[in-house]
Design a binder for these strands. Structure first.
Lengths: 103, 103
DNA sequence: ATTCTATGCATAGGATTTCGAGGTATTGAA
DNA sequence: TTCAATACCTCGAAATCCTATGCATAGAAT
């Protein structure tokens, strides 16, 4: 399903809870939405790179069970962006829901 | 400000209420969302043409106060699409709101 | 031992949506 | 008669997302 531009916000939200690596972030979002939010890897990784480029998240290498994985944590700037994006989502989704929901 | 991908559904919803012309549809969406949703003309007209191409809406010329305007009405197929799109939106927005809303 | 599945990261090419900017024309009020 | 609002349209660029593809490792199944 199309995410309507919410992926960066969802990633920031996930990383605000705890630092994590890409694959796990995607799994988490899918699980927490009961499978409704399900985007592909070709969407995820470019989104992560863009957020890092913008300084909203930062990466570090983490070794777990012999494997090195690229993990991310949210930055101070990212936290501020999350707050803004969350408010924006609430306003926009409310507006659309109100219009579509009117009998 | 806008949520990508919601415009076709909003147009279908507007035309399900009553046939109308493009400019008025855009005004209506803006008004009913208290200005939150504001689609530009460069977005609106191509979207209308696409919906017509797909057979979800159909156009007819209407004359009012000496001016000829291109008006649209929703088709049977369009009504079915609206029902589907509405349900899909509800599921998506619910999922995102739940995730972003969890303290 | 080997094969399969899940994990994990990444890029390339294309489709779709939106915006900004520009163009044309009519109506009614200042 | 000039100007704002209405009304329609197209083009180019940017952003988002998908499909497809590639690479590599870990653990389970055969």
């Amino acid at each position: 399903m199309n995410l309507k531009g919410t992926l960066p916000t969802l990633i920031l939200e996930a990383l605000a809870r705890q630092p994590n690596h890409g694959y796990a972030i995607a799994q988490r979002i899918k699980e927490r939405s009961s499978g409704v939010l399900d985007f592909k890897e070709g969407t995820l990784y470019p989104a992560l790179h863009k957020l890092e480029n913008e300084g909203l998240i930062e990466s570090f290498d983490e070794v777990e069970s012999g494997r090195t994985r690229r993990s991310y944590r949210i930055t101070k700037t990212g936290k501020a962006a999350l707050t803004r994006d969350r408010a924006e989502w609430m306003a926009l989704s409310q507006a659309v829901t109100t219009i579509l929901g009117e009998a």
